[in-house]
Amino acid sequence: MNGGSGARIFRARCGTISGERPRLTCPLAALGVGERGRVVHVRNASAPLLQKLLAMAVIPGSEVRVDLTFPAFVFEVGNTRVAVDRAIAERIEVERVIRAEERPRGAKG
């Protein structure tokens, strides 16, 4: 849909755009459909789960885009698409990423 490489990226606090303020994170479960985030870390996950997420490229630094929030969370990571339940989506901490050209539609507040 968009090239990505040339897009300006704003770092945002969950829910509101905060420009250059300190980065705050929120769980992936708080993102809406079409919203993007960058994985910061995965909380309280067992070693096997971390390993599985790693295998699906859900690792700190990777950018995700949410496709679906119900009945499960489906998001894109690179060329992969991953489905997880809410319990896992709550544990994946992301910082919200807002692309300049998506702001009118994508951002709340």
């Binding site: 067992s46 789960l49 489906v74 698409r81 991953v82 489905a83 339940d85 319990a87 896992i88």
Partner: peptide
């Protein structure tokens, strides 16, 4: 035992 968790890759 642990509650079930669900994760899966969704291929095209």
């Amino acid at each position: 035992g642990e509650r079930p968790v669900f994760y899966m890759e969704v291929p095209p």
